[in-house]
Design a protein around this nucleic acid. Structure first.
Length: 424
RNA sequence: GGAGAGAUGGCCGAGUUGGCUGAAGGCGCUCGCCUGCUAAGCGAGUGAGGGGUGAAAGCUCCUCCGAGGGUUCGAAUCCCUCUCUCUCCGCCA
């Protein structure tokens, strides 16, 4: 959410930012309701003041045994008027709030203009692409041959777009989760979190999934609860409503969770393999920072995620999401895209974003500077470090051998019980 | 699932026959004093959000005692609903 004062005084800029993202909003209604809200509020405050003063007077008179009936009658009328105005106020406030909740974040000035993902500039490319002297298989075919992935059985158990890992495949997934968490906690200074996998509506609203994107979520029947689409939601909400001390910032959390996404509107896209599933595992990085350091922290967050790929030896590129591709809550996002040789494309494996105060304002996460009065909103950031299923897919495809086996990166050997290679 | 207790400021904790209590007291924190050092001591200050006014310091008004609603001239205090926490019983990984 953007600050109401900012929106109020920068309507043209908001409009411009919206159009850069290819979006629109009903700013005219916002203007009207906001103005109305203010005049009504002023009127209410005046009446409340009068009521407070006279009520005190009534108290004094009663104490002295005087008759205050006239004042009481008067105030009865005032109370009625206040009630009426309060109703009108809340009507306008609700409209204003709904519009505010529907406004996406303002892109940072370093975000390039563009209409969609095809216009995301590549920031860097790391690693060398594998050069096969045979036709590389897609990971789903490898998974089947190696008997470590079985999507047919998963479909039998649940339905389409669910993974079933078997044997070494299950072990590999678990190894990667532990490996990633270990790197982030021991090398990068993050604190490990294991959060609830189900969250309430308030938490989803704070991070921006709601109210706009409810159709992307799995909702529990009979509860106003949702399955987490990313650990970002429960972890960011750890500090909701809190006023943090300056000294404890930045706060760095890393968390493994499964992620559940309805993938509404993506039918027919990436139907094969581990790329687009209703359930996948992810290790997430979350930061709470002071405003002046958040963009530096975004760079280190990106580096922390990249480190995983560097250690694993997987080739990737980093793109800077353009205005048209930027997520709703983000002010700036880098995507890390992993090379998938069988398809000959780069696929997103991590998304690292600075939300500035957008989520903090909704979640009311503030901090206090030492020796200064008042509070400020923190900046929140997060990024995948990394999506585990897609990492498995990338490992299989990039490290496949002519004999159908797949080499396991050395860093994972201890996590695989010494296994260096998966063979059919 | 059954029975009961509770939710107050950064923290602890008073306040429920409704009326100068935005909230005593303590801790913590900030500034000053004192003090060979440390500790202790003394003095002052110290919630948040919003509005008006002002160049600013400030002054002033409104709101907030888990959330929402109600009663009342007036509610932290009374009533209702919800959420959460704790205790006991039951059940259970």
């Amino acid at each position: 959410m953007l600050e109401i004062k900012f929106v109020r005084h920068n309507l043209p800029e908001i409009e411009k930012a919206l159009s850069r993202r290819g979006e629109t909003a009903d700013l005219e209604t916002f203007k009207q309701c906001d103005a109305k809200r203010k005049t009504v509020l002023l009127e209410i405050e005046n009446l409340r003041h009068r009521r407070n003063v006279v009520s005190e007077q009534i108290a004094a008179m009663k104490k002295d045994g005087e008759d205050a009936d006239d004042f009481v009658t008067q105030m009865r009328e005032v109370a009625g008027k206040i009630r009426e105005l309060e109703y009108r106020l809340s009507e306008n406030e609700n409209k204003v709030k709904q519009i505010l909740l529907g406004l996406p974040n303002i892109p940072h000035k370093s975000v390039p203009a563009g209409k969609d993902s095809s216009e995301n500039p590549v920031v860097k490319q790391i690693g060398t692409l594998p050069d096969f002297d045979f036709e590389p298989l897609p990971h789903w075919a490898l998974g089947k041959k190696l008997k470590i992935l079985d999507f047919e059985t998963a479909a039998k158990i649940t339905g389409a777009r669910f993974p079933l890992y078997l044997g070494k495949g299950a072990r590999l997934e678990r190894a990667l989760i532990n490996f990633m968490l270990d790197i982030h906690t021991t090398k990068h200074g993050y604190k490990e979190i294991l959060p609830p996998f189900i969250v309430n509506r308030d938490s989803m609203t704070n991070t921006g999934q709601l109210p706009k994107f409810e159709e992307d979520l799995f909702k529990l029947k009979g509860w106003d609860y949702f399955l987490v689409p990313t650990a970002e939601v429960p972890v960011t909400n750890i500090h909701k409503g809190e006023i943090l001390n300056e000294e404890i910032l930045p706060i760095l959390y890393t968390a493994y969770t499964p992620c559940f996404r309805s993938e509404a509107g993506s039918y027919g896209k990436d139907t094969k393999g581990l790329i687009r599933q209703h359930q996948f595992n992810k290790v997430e990085l979350v930061k709470f920072t002071k405003p002046e350091t958040s963009y530096d922290e975004l760079e280190t967050l990106l580096n922390n995620a990249e480190t995983i790929l560097k250690i694993l030896g997987l080739p990737y590129q980093v793109v800077n999401l353009c205005t048209g591709d930027l997520g709703f809550s983000a002010a700036k996002t880098y995507d890390i895209e992993i090379w998938m040789p069988a398809q000959g494309v780069y696929r997103e494996i991590s998304s690292c974003s600075n939300f500035e105060s957008f989520q903090a304002r909704r979640a009311n996460i503030r901090f206090k500077r030492k020796g200064e009065k008042g509070t400020e909103l923190v900046h929140t950031l997060n990024g995948s470090g990394l999506a585990v299923g897609r990492t498995v897919a990338a490992l299989l495809e990039n490290f496949q051998q002519a004999d159908g086996s797949v080499l396991i990166p050395e860093a994972l050997w201890p996590y695989m019980g010494g296994l260096e290679k998966i063979t059919p």
